[in-house]
């Protein structure tokens, strides 16, 4: 079911974001016992898609899940193991030469916004600093006004 909803939420033939599918994916992440550990890898695979629209949709799904899927999902995303998958999209040593500027821009913007929103996640900060040191991130992106404030706190586990 996780893959089914993710395929729907990242369908490259649809230009608009399918928010109902994203919501269903998030709910599935929260109800499936393996959801929080499995979902980040499904998302990483989509984010590395050669199809720009699929990758962009997947980034929106990831961002929504980080804000709404609870601590366990957040904890997985904040590990180097997952952050490396985002770094691969940016680094010319990995997939960076094939990634479009739009996708790279969104990944950088998202990583930077996490460093602002979640300063306690040291690994996110380290990954972002490494990208800057490598010259992959030239300067901090300007976050749109609606993204400067942190997202709503994750729902308590019991809900």
């Amino acid at each position: 079911a996780l893959e089914l909803w993710l395929n729907k939420a990242t369908d490259p033939s649809v230009s608009e974001q399918d928010w109902a599918a994203i919501q269903n994916f998030c709910e599935q992440v929260n109800t499936d016992p393996n959801g929080p550990t499995h979902a980040p890898w499904l998302l990483a695979h989509k984010i590395q898609s050669p199809q720009e629209r699929e990758a962009l949709h997947a980034l929106t799904v990831l961002e929504t899940c980080v804000n709404h899927c609870g601590e366990k999902f957040h904890g997985e995303v904040a590990k180097f193991r997952f952050l490396n998958e985002l770094i691969k999209v940016l680094s010319p040593k990995y997939l960076g030469s094939w990634t479009t500027d739009k996708v790279k821009g969104r990944v950088i913007e998202m990583l930077f916004s996490w460093t602002v929103w979640f300063p306690e996640d040291i690994k996110i900060r380290d990954a972002y600093q490494m990208l800057k040191k490598q010259g992959i991130v030239k300067q901090d992106p300007k976050l749109p006004a609606d993204r400067i404030l942190p997202p709503p706190s994750p729902r308590p586990r019991s809900s």
């Binding site: 590990k79 180097f80 680094s91 040593k93 690994k123 380290d126 990954a127 490494m130």
Partner: peptide, 15 residues
């Protein structure tokens, strides 16, 4: 212990 060893195995990608 499991968590500790997982922590040790979690590295940034070599660049």
């Amino acid at each position: 212990l499991g968590e500790e060893s997982e922590e040790r195995d979690d590295h940034l990608l070599p660049m």
